[in-house]
Each structure stands twice: as structure tokens, then as C-alpha cells.
């Protein structure tokens, strides 16, 4: 061990605030929740807190309801990520072009990103409203449907509709990330292909799509992480309903912890979700880095 250098003392001073924050509000809570997850903590019985070891984890992992919510989380995330990738790619391709009004368009694109998720929820709940909502109104006026339809209340439609609200808010960020990747493609690559006589669609598949790979990886990784943990829209639009149709893992953690006041299982579930997210990110990076 060599002595602490002057630079390192300076670095330690500069990093003190960050380290304090990471310790107090990240590292400590994580370890504390690991601890909690080993006890049967229930705020209804605040004085009894028996140590139960891995029982909470076993209880969670052997509960069919939990696996049901895992399935719904996976479905929601897959739907959302796939749609975000497609729409964001189209948006990025559009914004990569030079045309009058492009700057205004890209400024407007930030609006969904900036909107609070609560208002996003409120807005789509109102759009989906089966009596006076805009969706029914529009479809009726256009003649696509004959009578008002129940949207969120239909358990087959709930997840896709919530995903739609999620997608709407997430597309801008994904599009910006893809656009940066597009801009980094050297122009002479296209020039060379054009000289070689490759038509536009060929250039797109031979150059643009492969060059977008790192962008796709980044977007998939980030959006999958956001989708898996998403809570706000489930709370605002359906509260897990109807009949558990939108009961995803994040919602389940909330119910278990703050409605059933069973902090032990809640913490165990949070831990499982965190570890699953980590594994998923790792698998995505490994898998996509290889195949793409």
C-alpha cells in the first residue's frame, strides 16, 4: 500500500458529498432492506419481528400470484420495448433529415418526456374514459366502432393500453438516443454506397440498421429497465385491475408493503425485482452484443 497522495486527498474531499449521499440514501437502504427481508416485519404488529431467514423469499417465489404478476410485467415490458424501438427508430430517421421546421419538431418531441407521469396517467385515463373519452369519441366519429367501448375496464385491453401511455412518454428519449447514433454514422459510408450504385432501401439495410445497433442496445436496456420497474401508470389508471389484469410486480410490491403492511415480503420482492433487473441488463448486454 503506498501512501495516500495529495491528489487522492483532494479527490476524497471533492467526493465527500457524493459518497455521503450514496451511503445514506442508496447503500444503506439497500442493505437495510436486505436485513428487513429476512424478518417477518408487519406494521400491524410493530413489536413482534421474528427472524424468518429466507422464508419471505420462499413465500414470494412459491406464490402463483407473484408469478402471475411476473408474467404480466414481462408482457408489458416486451410490448412497450418493442413498440418504443419501432416508433423511436421512425422518429429518429425523420429527424435525421434536413427540412424546414425540423427544429420545432424536435423541441415539441420533448413535451411527452417532460410531462409528469401523474399527468400522463390522468390524461390517458381521460382519453380512455368509456363515457366521454377522446378515444371513443374519435372512433365513433370516424365510424370505426358503432357504440362506446369499454377500454381500461376490459381485462384483455388493460395492459396494452397502459403500455401505450408508457410508450407515448418514453418514445422521445429513445428517439433522441437513436438520433445521436444515426448522426455518428460517417457520411462517406453513404457516399461510398451511393457510388457503388446501392439504392436507398439497400443503403438503409446495409448501413443504417447495422450502424444503429449500439443505439438499439442502449434503448432496449434502458427502456426495459424503466418498464420492469414502472409503477405510476398502474396506480393511476387501474390500481392493478380489473380483476388483477394489470397486477404487475411493482404494483404487487406496493400493495404488499403499504396496503398489507407486510414489509418483510415487500422487501424480499423488491430484492427479487432488483436482482432480476440486474440479471436482465447483464443478459441483454451479453446477448445483444453477440447477436447484433
Amino acid at each position: 500500500m503506498r501512501a495516500v497522495t495529495h491528489d487522492e486527498r483532494a479527490a476524497a474531499g471533492l467526493l465527500a458529498g457524493l459518497v455521503a449521499v450514496l451511503m445514506a440514501v442508496t447503500a444503506f437502504p439497500i442493505l437495510y432492506s436486505l436485513w428487513i427481508s429476512l424478518f417477518a416485519v408487519n406494521l400491524r404488529r410493530p413489536n413482534r419481528m421474528p427472524f424468518v431467514g429466507l422464508d419471505n423469499y420462499i413465500a414470494v417465489l412459491s406464490s402463483p400470484a407473484f408469478w402471475g404478476s411476473v408474467g404480466r410485467t414481462a408482457l408489458f415490458s416486451a410490448l412497450a420495448v418493442a413498440a418504443i424501438l419501432v416508433i423511436a427508430t421512425l422518429v429518429a430517421l425523420l429527424l435525421d433529415q434536413e427540412f424546414p421546421g425540423r427544429r420545432i419538431l424536435s423541441a415539441c418531441l420533448l413535451i411527452p418526456w417532460a410531462i409528469p407521469s401523474v399527468v400522463n396517467g390522468l390524461m390517458w385515463k381521460w382519453i380512455y374514459d368509456s363515457n366521454y373519452g377522446a378515444l371513443n369519441g374519435l372512433l365513433l366519429q370516424l365510424g370505426f366502432i358503432g357504440s362506446a367501448t369499454i377500454w381500461l375496464g376490459d381485462s384483455n385491453r388493460t395492459l396494452p393500453l397502459i403500455a401505450n401511455a408508457f410508450i407515448w412518454k418514453e418514445v422521445p428519449l429513445a428517439a433522441i438516443l437513436l438520433l445521436v447514433t444515426l448522426k455518428s454514422i460517417p457520411a462517406d459510408l453513404y457516399g461510398a454506397a451511393a457510388v457503388d450504385g446501392a439504392p436507398a432501401w439497400r443503403r438503409f439495410f446495409a448501413i443504417t440498421l447495422p450502424a444503429l445497433r449500439p443505439g438499439f442496445l442502449l434503448v432496449t436496456l434502458y427502456e426495459a429497465m424503466m418498464a420492469v420497474r414502472h409503477f405510476d401508470l398502474f396506480f393511476l389508471l387501474t390500481e392493478g385491475g380489473p380483476g388483477g389484469a394489470s397486477d404487475v410486480v411493482a404494483w404487487r410490491i406496493y400493495v404488499e408493503t403499504f396496503r398489507n403492511l407486510s414489509f418483510g415480503t415487500g422487501a424480499a420482492m423488491s430484492y427479487i425485482l432488483a436482482i432480476a433487473t440486474l440479471l436482465m441488463s447483464y443478459a441483454l448486454i451479453r446477448g445483444m452484443a453477440r447477436t447484433l
Partner: peptide, 14 residues
């Protein structure tokens, strides 16, 4: 990478 919902329980207790 850690979901914010995983921080909620311990932070709430603290």
C-alpha cells in the same frame, strides 16, 4: 440499475 421501488421500503422505514 436499482429500481426506485426497491428503495421505497427501506427509505420509508428510516
Amino acid at each position: 440499475v436499482i429500481p426506485d421501488i426497491a428503495l421505497v421500503v427501506p427509505l420509508f422505514l428510516v
